[in-house]
Amino acid sequence: MNDIPLHTEHVLFADDTALWTSSNTLTSLSQRLQQPIDAFESWCKSWKLKLKPTKTEMIPFRLHTRKKYKHPVETKVENTTIKPLDATRYVDVIIDKQLKWRNHLQHLESKMTRRISLLRYLAKSAQEPNQKTMINIFKAIARPVMAYVYPALLTANDKVWDRLSSWV
């Protein structure tokens, strides 16, 4: 993996790769994204790795989210045009184009609700629930859900943090 020719910001996690860049113009942005994508495609071919354009997603972050552009940002992976999305998931973190975290919080709430319900069931069904055991179960099944995405939520506003803290 050390010879990947990406001259842009990127992160690798298992078989997932994320690329990002910034620009003052949309035309320049498309070009700045396409160049590392082409280089990555070429690298994959040389190592006989198969890309899946159908799994490739793109999300543009911009200052004026309501402004409509004549020529939106588009890139191609193996001759497949990748159109911008309003939200995407990367390593179980849902990122929306405004970085509001609303979709991700709903996803987290769903996961946490199931886990907390399991804890309640276990506490009710035990004749004498052991507090230490319940805390250990919480640490094992609920806390990792929150801790896993903690770095991604560092940009979240106070409302998001208030909702998160109400779960624990």
Score class of each variant (00 low, 15 high):
residue 44 C to S: 12
residue 32 R to Q: 11
residue 25 T to I: 04
residue 79 N to L: 03
residue 51 L to T: 05
residue 21 T to Y: 02
residue 30 S to D: 04
residue 55 K to H: 01
residue 17 T to S: 05
residue 82 I to M: 03
residue 45 K to Q: 12
residue 15 D to S: 02
residue 40 F to A: 14
residue 51 L to S: 06
residue 47 W to L: 12
residue 14 A to H: 00
residue 75 T to P: 00
residue 62 R to P: 02
residue 48 K to L: 13
residue 36 P to C: 03
residue 18 A to F: 09
residue 30 S to T: 13
residue 52 K to G: 08
residue 81 T to Y: 01
residue 45 K to R: 10
residue 22 S to P: 02
residue 30 S to A: 12
residue 24 N to F: 13
residue 66 R to D: 07
residue 71 H to N: 10
residue 47 W to H: 15
residue 62 R to L: 08
residue 39 A to F: 07
residue 86 D to S: 14
residue 68 K to D: 14
residue 44 C to Y: 05
residue 60 P to N: 14
residue 65 T to D: 14
residue 82 I to E: 00
residue 69 Y to A: 11
residue 82 I to Y: 02
residue 77 V to G: 03
residue 23 S to A: 10
residue 35 Q to E: 11
residue 63 L to K: 11
residue 52 K to S: 14
residue 22 S to D: 10
residue 32 R to V: 04
residue 58 M to T: 04
residue 45 K to E: 11
residue 75 T to A: 05
residue 72 P to L: 15
residue 14 A to F: 00
residue 70 K to I: 12
residue 56 T to Y: 06
residue 48 K to R: 13
residue 33 L to C: 07
residue 60 P to K: 10
residue 28 S to N: 13
residue 73 V to H: 01
residue 26 L to E: 15
residue 51 L to C: 05
residue 28 S to M: 07
residue 82 I to F: 03
residue 76 K to V: 03
residue 39 A to R: 06
residue 57 E to N: 11
residue 31 Q to K: 14
residue 20 W to V: 05
residue 67 K to C: 13
residue 21 T to Q: 08
residue 26 L to D: 08
residue 65 T to V: 14
residue 84 P to C: 05
residue 20 W to P: 07
residue 76 K to T: 06
residue 71 H to C: 10
residue 75 T to Q: 01
residue 28 S to E: 08
residue 85 L to Q: 08
residue 19 L to N: 09
residue 51 L to N: 01
residue 71 H to F: 05
residue 26 L to A: 15
residue 34 Q to C: 10
residue 31 Q to I: 12
residue 57 E to Y: 09
residue 22 S to E: 12
residue 16 D to H: 00
residue 27 T to E: 09
residue 21 T to S: 12
residue 84 P to K: 07
residue 53 P to R: 15
residue 40 F to W: 08
